[in-house]
Amino acid sequence: MRSREEHEKDTQKLSPAMFLATKYDIASEAWTRSSPTTAELRRLVAYSTSSANLLTKLILQDGYDSYGWKCLLRTPLSNYDVVVLLHRDKLPYPQHLLFPSELEQERCAVRGHATKIFHPFFSPGDFKVNSGELKSKLMVNFDPVRCFIADIEARFSDEVKVWYDAVGGDALGLTLGKASSKKRKHDGSTEESKDLSNMLKTIGEVGKGLVRSIHVIKAQKRNN
């Protein structure tokens, strides 16, 4: 009730869309104090519903298809407006990647190239140099994906929302924000398409060496 009263006093104030209380946390401070937002909750509900329907289907059909069961644990890339694929050997924990992401049919807007600028792990050859040079290569708690996401959010906070599997994902899902959605109402406008293209090129430049390719998903579906 206190949370609702605060929201009624200031409707512009962003508050969590879910209130999850437990016996040891009646005020819901541990789990839902800062999240999820309304958009995040809607997406979570949609994913849960989709997974529940698929699970029911697999059980009723006595399905033993390994791909079908894997789909329960991975987010469909078709649910995003844009997908950014990352070089797997540049991930902080490549061994955690269970389901590699691939996109073939969707339009590729930007194609990146691997680089030797950084690497999350030491190679066997690194240990042959002196200790001083080895220390210069040591980066404690370095997560290039987190840095990349922070850069995207800092530059395009109003244009895109970034979704990422922090446990071990090789793809970033981008959904267009309110500013971009208003622009895209004029479907077929070359000027708006150019704005989106320039933004994706900038994202590719920011993630140089980490970005494998950037694909436009929803725009192609509308055009088809």
Rank of each mutant, 00 (worst) to 15 (best):
M1A: 10
S3F: 11
R4G: 03
E5V: 12
E6T: 00
H7S: 02
Q12E: 08
K13M: 00
L14R: 14
L14T: 10
A17M: 09
F19C: 07
Y24A: 12
S28P: 04
W31V: 04
R33F: 10
P36Y: 01
T38P: 03
L41D: 07
L41F: 06
V45Y: 02
S51P: 05
N53F: 01
L58D: 09
G68C: 04
W69R: 13
C71R: 15
L72Q: 04
L72T: 12
L73R: 11
P76F: 12
V84M: 05
L85A: 13
H87G: 07
L98R: 15
E102F: 14
L103A: 02
L103R: 01
Q105P: 03
E106Q: 12
G112I: 12
G112Y: 03
T115P: 02
T115N: 04
T115A: 15
F122M: 10
L134C: 05
L134E: 07
K137E: 01
M139Y: 05
V145F: 00
V145R: 02
F148P: 10
A150T: 13
R155V: 15
V167C: 02
G173S: 10
S181T: 13
S181A: 11
K183S: 08
D187G: 11
E191H: 08
E192M: 09
D195P: 00
L196G: 09
S197M: 05
I203N: 01
G204F: 06
S213I: 00
V216P: 00
I217G: 06
R222D: 05
N223C: 05
N223M: 04
N224T: 08
